[in-house]
Amino acid sequence: MSDILTPTEEALAEAPPPTRGGGALRYVLTKIGGGLVSFALVIVLGFLLFRALPGDVVATMFRGRPATPEMIANLKHQYGLDLPLWQQFVNYVGDLLRGDLGDSYVYRVPVWQKIEERFWPTVLLVGVSTLISVALGLWMGTRSGWRRGSRFDRISTGVALALWSTPTFWLGMLLLAATTGLFPTAGIVYSDTPPDFFSQALDIAHHMVLPTITMVAVTYAQYQLVMRSSLIEEMGADYLTTARAKGLRDDEVRRKHAVPNALLPTVTLVFLHLGFVIAGAISVETVFSWPGLGRLTYDALRVGDLPLLQGTFVVLAGAVIVMNVFADLLYRVLDPRVRAA
């Protein structure tokens, strides 16, 4: 090992033992600060992105009905779309800082209200399917990595890859067709279900089966493959030989030494993807008409509902950033080496 190319190694060798947690607050603040900067960029980008969308948003709002130029101009004025772009931006940011995302053109209600109403169904669907797919992926990845080249490894990796490359909407429709009548095809709950908690929960669960299976099927492969490859990387490590030499059983070596180390890169991936999964729920929610954020975004995009699009964009991008920051913070808790750096 040569340390001539890496700075401060010598400082390390001579320095007193690091005081743990000393730089923790600074670390947390740096990460949160970084997240806020990203968020600011997202707001600017989101604003410009939707201004660059083709087609006149106001014209689409009339949906082909005849409209006089005055009516259009009136509406533009009403929404502040006749102002110069910078003025629009200043107004937008000002409103955003007050927590006002504007009113939806189509639903005629505040965007916040719409997002709030659609937020929890998405969290429920994404949360449950992520839990299942992480558990499944990690378990399969550990098993296939530990016995690399075994029949289990070859089959499960093949299946995972095949599902991973399956288009989500196609798999969803296939499931719908294959299980006709067994599960509800749309929505989150029947309108005639009794209002008591138990019946409601049962009905929601019933509605969730197909969307959840679809989401798990297309996402668990990434967890399995990352877990598998990071476990294989750890397999050659000397500390596993040490553990074996101590007389540990093979499964103890795996559970106590190999897996905790191999989990580290996987945990980061899980959290990085959580943010994306929320956005990725768009196709599942559309196929199963699940009243979530993904579906909302899809509808807003179809009709060109500018404030709603901006709103969902900010929320979805915000979710990615929050999860990113959280992954960084969690990694520090899990890996003592990051704490020292």
């Binding site: 490590a237 000397d238 500390y239 030989t241 040490t242 553990a243 074996r244 030499a245 101590k246 007389g247 540990l248 106590k256 030494h257 905790p260 180390n261 580290l264 899990l334 890996d335 003592p336 080496r337």
Partner: peptide, 30 residues
């Protein structure tokens, strides 16, 4: 027999210790 009859001192400066466990726990393990 491992570690009780014969134990091995590996090249510790390299990677023979588990990087995410306190050394106390690694000594106590056997």
């Amino acid at each position: 027999v491992r570690w009780t009859s014969a134990a091995i001192v590996f090249q510790g400066a390299m990677h023979a210790l588990n990087p995410v466990q306190r050394v106390r726990d690694q000594i106590a393990e056997p």
